[in-house]
Design a protein around this nucleic acid. Structure first.
Lengths: 252, 252
DNA sequence: CGCGAACTTGACTGTAGTCAACCTGCGTGG
DNA sequence: CCACGCAGGTTGACTACAGTCAAGTTCGCG
């Protein structure tokens, strides 16, 4: 247990407690999870499609993409994950792979054994609940992603993704009008289901609203960008209001 | 508690026990869940977008689509659900809406109060685990959907959806080469992110492999259809092997 | 028998993909 | 310290897949 692994676990706890109530003891149990630190370089696949792992991946730093692939090898990113995300939390109950993981930039990952996660979830039902809820937030994001990719045009798709990341990276603070997202236009295209060429052209038409330079997103007009991106962030934040934080699975 | 509501709950239990081990007592607790039967007609929205409900919807019969919508009102179906599916199981831990529900054909729904679901999940950790796992299967399907809609062409998308439904409807039996899917070409388009016109044309090019008439899908050449649809069903079935059925959250 | 929903077809349009060339900026090594 | 190489970004010309619009046709149902 190093200092930095504790810091990463604390980010994870913060993420959970934004939506779930956990006692100090429960938070402590999560912070005490064993982990093994691994570093990956930019563009490296570190979990392959269909790979079955015995650990979940907690992101200590960097940005990670989950992806699927077609028969011809075209990639589709299905989710971005940021520091504090336990990317494979779902594998706690369903260890079969749902896509590969790729480091979008240099990333530090803590591998947390499934066994330890299951143990803590079994011991504290409120933790299991918090994990489950966290998985459901990811699912809500995924559903938006389907709508985005399926029914919106290029400009709108890109704007939507950039808005989503602004909210997620700025979690429980205000909306971040400027944030690091060190991805190439090609990687943004993999997420928005566009080619890099078309991302490039679309991004140019958005210059007044948002720019990306050197892996940093600068939103110049949040309101206009959210408008273009048809972005309505309640699916991300609706359950962070205090009165919705519950411990539903508390024993009678 | 009517005979038919028991039958629907039994379908739900069957669905759960395909992937999770539940004792007779636990199965009994699920079968004893209270419910309120409601009928909906074809094409009726019965849960609106962003609606927050106090109950989950168990499908007793019919096919239901979950959908999202763009600002211009274009619909994108993000999931099909069939008899035995507890459509809103995720709302057990996260009651905020993730899209609306629409009856694709005449459907019978059992409304099961969240409170009762939470109670049974709190009392039996293995049930909570089975619920969570079930939610994760839906998420896996959703991820495939993103890849499908984002990166495949029309023919492939349609073939993929039809293969997926064949597996899901034929669950734990063999692949069904013929099954009821009483949806219009327009509704299939909403799922595959295509217009009804293009669905129509694409379907014609697939006539040798699959036909849809009177709401019944007839797969004439499963192998060829799966090939066209780039369909690899392991994401649906990988955890139904006996050795993977586990009770991870059992108390020590 | 007549109506309406769903399906079918054709002609045309348009958004995004493809291919290819070129530019720019950064890191590395001579 | 400059030259080179390379990854990423930019632009243009052309293509093509799917959307749009509109006019039938078919089929089931009242």
């Amino acid at each position: 247990m190093t200092a930095s692994s504790t810091a990463a676990l604390q980010l994870f706890v913060d993420r959970l407690t934004a939506r779930s109530i956990l006692t100090d003891e429960e938070q402590g149990a999560i912070l005490a999870l064993p982990s093994h630190r691994v570093e990956f370089r930019r563009k490296q696949d570190f979990v392959h499609i269909d790979e079955v792992t015995s650990y979940a991946c907690l992101i200590a730093s960097g940005v990670v993409g989950r992806f699927g692939q077609t028969a011809t090898g075209a990639r589709q990113t299905t989710a971005f994950h940021i520091a504090g995300d336990m990317v494979d939390l779902h594998s706690t109950v369903r260890p079969v792979g749902i896509g590969g993981l790729n480091a979008l930039c240099e990333a530090t990952i803590l591998r947390v054994p499934h066994a330890a996660i299951r143990e803590v979830a079994a011991r504290y039902p409120a933790i299991a609940e918090a994990f489950w809820r966290d998985c459901m937030l990811d699912a809500a994001v995924l559903m938006q992603w389907v709508v985005n990719v399926g029914r919106r045009d290029a400009r709108t798709r890109i704007a939507h993704v950039l808005c989503e990341m602004a909210i997620r990276i700025g979690e429980d603070r205000q909306i971040l009008v400027e944030y690091d997202l060190p991805i190439t236009q090609e990687q943004l295209g993999d997420a928005a289901a566009l080619t890099s060429v078309h991302v490039n052209r679309s991004l140019k038409t958005l210059t007044d609203l948002v720019t990306i330079r050197h892996g940093r997103v600068r939103i110049r007009d949040w309101h206009a960008l959210a408008d273009v991106g048809e972005f309505e962030g309640s699916y991300l934040t609706a359950d962070t209001a205090p009165d919705r934080q519950r411990r539903y699975l508390e024993r009678p």
